[in-house]
Design a protein around this nucleic acid. Structure first.
Lengths: 202, 202, 202, 202
DNA sequence: CATGAATGAGACTTCATTCAT
DNA sequence: AATGAATGAAGTCTCATTCAT
């Protein structure tokens, strides 16, 4: 019991650090963010951070992994409900956008620090993240392929990637200039686009 | 005459540095790349770099701007030839992919160092680059809208962004695992997808 | 309690650095003195210096300001005791000389690095120091003017400046060739000189 | 003849450089002045400077020596004319002030770069300058002593140094705030002060 | 003579990480 | 467990001086 409580408190603190650090990393970028700043933001000392994370990189990647897993689970749940390709695509678009909007710090982190991820010397971590991303994609791809039309020249994998790429760029645009973009409208447009293409109304 | 030659040689050297630096920035990322390393790669001394670029940041952004402008011109030419929406989309996909493939160092740079761009303290540069990107998009959007079907619920801007987002993600996948991806095939799929959507063959 | 001790130790260390740095700046001049050298002299690492001073310039000016204030207070006390013009002039000469002799590192610093002070890009600091020097002078001038003879064509301000200028040059001569100069003698001569001029004994 | 002309032109150029460099050194200080800047100011290239001066230090000290000698000659002439102690002191004050005012760049240089002079690693140069300054002082001292009152407790050397020190500080004050100081008035006050002291009017 | 591109040693400063308290 | 003073490696940038043209 005693140790359970302790364990819980420790976990709580870890989460707290992760959340605060995510904000500050997102706002300033990995390199411009000092451990000093993270510590201050968390209300702890620098030393305390090192009781929970081995290094600045470890802290950084812990944030990413945490959220990537969360996104994966959320998406998986959403896609399971879909009964046809239309619902599948709509669910993907809706869920991924919503996740990015509610976790825009995370989104910004991933976009801004792609380089950190690709160039880290911790190759284990790098491979693991690329792997994770791949599984994420496969999961989506598999879910969509269940309702995929026969004889389509388009592969489910290509479709999935395309949709994700689109969502990324629209989210980024929205982050840079929120007022100029109506996300609800975009979601509808994208669903229409990926279902029927641009020539439906010709 | 004398000074012309000198000017030409100077320009030549500048280009040389830009090209070498692009490679090394792409390979290692902005922060992990030292001016020392760039200098060595160029076969010059550190000091020589500063004869052409005010700072490491200036060097970095000069690379980006150079290539972004080049891409803009290339794309504009390609889109002008298009006579209908099909040709327009195909041209966009073809040209942008080709540019990224032949300039994959540049592509990697942009993807990896998005954060550098977004978080630079040189706000003038930041605004200028975002502006440039916006114009790029507008240009594409305008070109496509010329052949756009009446009554489409999809805006040319949304379509353009979506296609660019897709190209980005596919290019990145290809860079990470070139053997698993047939780019020619992807180009065709994307053209099909954005013209007719996924339900054409239902 | 705990924090009091810490604060005291911190202050102690700051003072220690100031004192050691003063020596080395005086010996080598501002530009030739490296932070590395200061650190070594202090027995700390380079980084430790930056825990107490924002920059090399900050360290330098902190030394100056500290001592200038100290000199001001010392002089003010001495001048207050004077009951007539003779005592005033004698006190000024005695006190300022003594201060320079016991703080000859400081004196050398001010003489040698006048340029650093006049040309610093930190205009705030520059103005502040010139201001301080001015107040110093005004204070002396005021103190002397209390006992000033009526109808003198000489202003207290001119007298004060003149005495200070003389002290500077004699101190410098003494520093450069201590054995050739009897400071006690000089003090007496100067008192006589400023009281009665050179023609008294004609 | 040919070579005479050449020699003259060479000498002319040397003088030109000395004069321009004096200005810029005075304005910015020795360390902040780059050879690049001197070259530009002179309208020559950096390399050209090195045809006339061995190094930046050599250039700097050449300026000083040139002017110190000039001052020495000017002062010697003036003091020779003096027929009594009053004229001697008046001549010293008048001449030295005038020289500093017409050559205020030089004055500023000497004041600002005292440290450069005292701390130069070129000990030969340092000794030579200190020596020069000493001779300068001796010359003044000797000139004044000719008309010196018998039995004065004040040595000519002390008097000379004191006057020079006063002139330095008043010139500096005047340079920093020209409008607040009436130099003609100061000259008169100083003459009065050093002749009769402050108690004459008691 | 004159040039100015090139050099490269060297200085300041930052900051992740450690460890004595 | 928590702290934060201390470290020291590493990186950017400057600039006096040289030398091929």
């Amino acid at each position: 019991m005693q140790s359970e409580k302790k364990e819980a408190r420790r976990e709580q603190k870890r989460r707290d650090i992760l959340q605060r650090a995510e904000q500050i990393f997102a706002r300033q970028g990995f390199h411009s963010t000092t451990m000093e700043a993270v510590a201050e933001e968390c209300g702890w000392s620098k030393g305390a951070l090192y009781l929970h994370f081995e290094s600045k990189e470890d802290l950084f990647f812990s944030i990413i992994i945490e959220k990537v897993d969360q996104l994966g689970r959320t998406l998986e749940d959403a896609l399971e409900q879909a009964e046809d390709i239309e619902q599948g695509i709509a669910a993907l678009i809706q869920t991924q956008f919503d996740f990015f909007v509610s976790n825009n710090d995370f989104f910004q982190l991933v976009v801004s620090e792609q380089g950190k991820i690709l160039h880290t010397s911790d190759t284990g971590m790098r491979e693991s993240l690329i792997q994770k991303q791949h599984q994420h994609l496969e999961m989506i791809s598999l879910a969509l392929s269940k309702h995929f039309p026969e004889g389509s020249p388009i592969q489910a994998l290509t479709l999935s990637r395309s949709i994700l790429g689109s969502i990324n760029i629209h989210t980024l645009s929205w982050l840079l200039a929120p007022l100029t973009i109506d996300l609800e409208q975009i979601k509808n447009e994208l669903t229409e686009l990926y279902l029927y293409g641009v020539k439906r109304h010709v």
